[in-house]
Design a binder for these strands. Structure first.
Lengths: 246, 246
DNA sequence: CGAGCCGTTGAGGGGATTCAAGCTCAGTGG
DNA sequence: CCACTGAGCTTGAATCCCCTCAACGGCTCG
């Protein structure tokens, strides 16, 4: 089994250093975020103590098993949700990017199911349970918005099984690239995980991950691989994907 | 990649043949089911058109991509949630047993994310969206109950990744047995899937699944394997699990 | 500049797949 | 009645993909 967890990781000194509490309306991700569907009027007359939480790369937001008083929306960056097996192997079970909600179990007063770690410098909005409840009282549309988030998370987890965890390693890698595409930066460059992280997502060893990245670079699917950034030839990706999937 | 889908499966002529509509209170699974937490008083004065849906083994309840007007609670039996890859390989992503809620996406008017198929003769309660909405109006505790279901499904999907889809095939098989244990019948016998189904759950071939079952029988982890029923030596299972997990 | 992390590549071994044969059992029809 | 069939399961042999172990280079940082 691949993926010994051997990285000693800096932890967020919880409560993480918060930027000044802000109101929601000026937020750049509001349209996609939890409160995006709600009327401005609702939000403006509800007192919200929503804080901005910055996270360094590889910094942990919360641990599996902890209970916390807040859920989070990813404002920028990328978060991985992972757990560790009894044998000490890490497995990444989901990724959450801009606009996605994580740690929703806190709203039910249940312990976090996974550890949440920033893949890169990341900023989140902290949504305390109390704030959510207050908004829910003011606007009955919130429960539905929350359920839609839950369903989205469920669908992502299930497709992680069918895409990322199924078939030969090459297919899994290609499916992972497909999934990283939407999180590309403004120059269209996707974030390439460390080889070890790729391994923890695909359940392969870091050596196999490295060989796959090299091979895909040679084939031109990946271009200008510099460190953790790369451009993906989307057409070629689709092409080799159907070939690998047969 | 394992698991060609080659079984021509009988489909439920939808709408499936329904037993007479019943009220919830006398239901044997109500305590664990969606309406279990709600007051009897609430349920008795809300008109519910909840129907009992029987399903034969390998009969499909709904297909991926379909939209439907109802979610379902498993009253007895076992349901598998599966999808098929572009290459035509099946992958089972979740199991739902007695008391569990499936097809919740219908409550949001979203298409079903997976196909739901009965593993054995199964009975479900059909919960139309309209009924859920009426109950929600009468009892404000329902949204929370629903969210708890969503969270449970999400946690099951994520642990399916970490348990069933991670590590060597032997470990996956043992984890699968662990997960079948709670669904054992009244004589403590677990349902053993077909070898092909095991393959579709663990992403291995049916031959490998067969070898694993044979090996575990020889080792005494599985006993009295007759057809699709077997007893599991729980102590020995735990024992070989820690051994395999190292 | 040495230490540690990250990535790459090679060689060898092992676990899972592939291909194949043969078995049991239920259903079917001559 | 019994061959005939097809589905499901098992087992063997050969192949291949991925893991393991190992060595090495680039890079950052103390």
């Amino acid at each position: 089994m691949p993926g010994e967890v051997h990285v000693m990781r800096r932890m967020a000194s919880r409560p993480a250093s918060l930027a000044a509490a802000t109101h929601c309306p000026p937020c750049e991700v509001r349209p996609q975020a939890l409160f995006g569907a709600l009327a401005d009027a609702t939000l403006s007359h509800v007192r919200l103590d929503i804080a901005s939480v910055p996270l360094a790369a590889d910094e942990s937001l919360y641990l599996r098993g902890e209970t916390g008083p807040a859920a989070y929306t990813v404002r920028s960056g990328l978060v991985r949700l992972e757990r560790v097996t009894e044998a000490g192997h890490r497995r990444i079970v989901r990724l959450a990017g801009r606009g996605e909600l994580i740690g929703q179990e806190a709203l039910l007063e249940r312990p976090f199911a996974d550890e949440a770690v920033a893949c890169m410098p990341t900023v989140l909005c902290r949504l305390p349970r109390s704030a959510i409840e207050r908004v829910a009282q003011a606007d009955p549309a919130l429960p539905r918005a929350l359920m839609l988030r839950w369903q989205a998370a469920l669908e992502q987890a299930e497709s992680w099984i069918a895409d990322i965890s199924t078939g030969p390693s090459r297919r899994r890698m290609l499916k992972l690239l497909e999934r990283l595409l939407p999180h590309a930066d403004d120059q269209g460059r996707v974030w390439l995980p460390r080889r070890q992280e790729i391994g923890d997502m695909l359940d392969i060893t870091l050596e196999t991950a490295s060989r796959l990245v090299s091979q895909l670079s040679r084939e031109g699917v990946l271009a200008s691989v510099d460190g953790r950034r790369a451009t993906v030839d989307v057409a070629r990706l689709a092409q080799v994907l159907v070939a690998a999937d047969r």
